[in-house]
């Protein structure tokens, strides 16, 4: 479904915690569609966006759909570049072990699971962001 073979670098920057607003969920919806267009997709979780990836989310009590498990499907959609802002985690007293593990399967290596998560500093993120063609922040 690529547009005459044009491949651009799309980065989605997630800065809000889930459920309080719809941004996290609707961001995920755009991400999945972008992957279907064979684009170079990466995701950044920074500020309160890191809470989107928390393990053990239970939404029964708030009556909303728990979409946290959908992040685990990103690997199936060939989205292998997940950047997590180390400073945002530290500011919130979190570490990467509080977050879901996100992996992708390497078909060439008998579907071996490889981690999609990259823990990066703000300086590194700034550098990665400035190399993108399209940045959408939700």
């Amino acid at each position: 479904m690529s547009e005459e073979g044009i491949v651009k670098k799309f980065m989605y920057v997630n800065r809000k915690s889930p459920y309080g607003t719809i941004y996290a969920l609707e961001s995920l919806e755009v991400v999945l569609i972008t992957a279907a267009f064979d684009q170079d997709v990466s995701l950044t979780f920074t500020d309160d966006g890191v809470y989107q990836l928390m393990k053990d989310q239970k939404t029964d009590g708030i009556g909303m759909k728990n979409f946290s498990s959908t992040y685990s499907a990103l690997g199936d959609y060939e989205i292998k570049k997940i950047f997590i802002d180390k400073e945002s985690l530290e500011e919130r007293g979190l570490s990467v072990s509080d977050l879901q593990e996100l992996v992708w399967e390497d078909e060439d290596e008998d579907y071996a699971e490889k981690s999609s998560i990259n823990l990066v500093s703000r300086a590194e993120l700034s550098n990665i962001m400035s190399q993108q063609d399209i940045v959408m922040s939700f």
Binding site: R15, T46, D47, E87, R122, L125, S126, N127, M129, S130
Partner: peptide
């Protein structure tokens, strides 16, 4: 904190 986040992630020639 949007302004401070933006400044902390802004590359030099931006």
């Amino acid at each position: 904190s949007t302004v401070t986040s933006c400044i902390s992630m802004c590359a030099k020639d931006s």
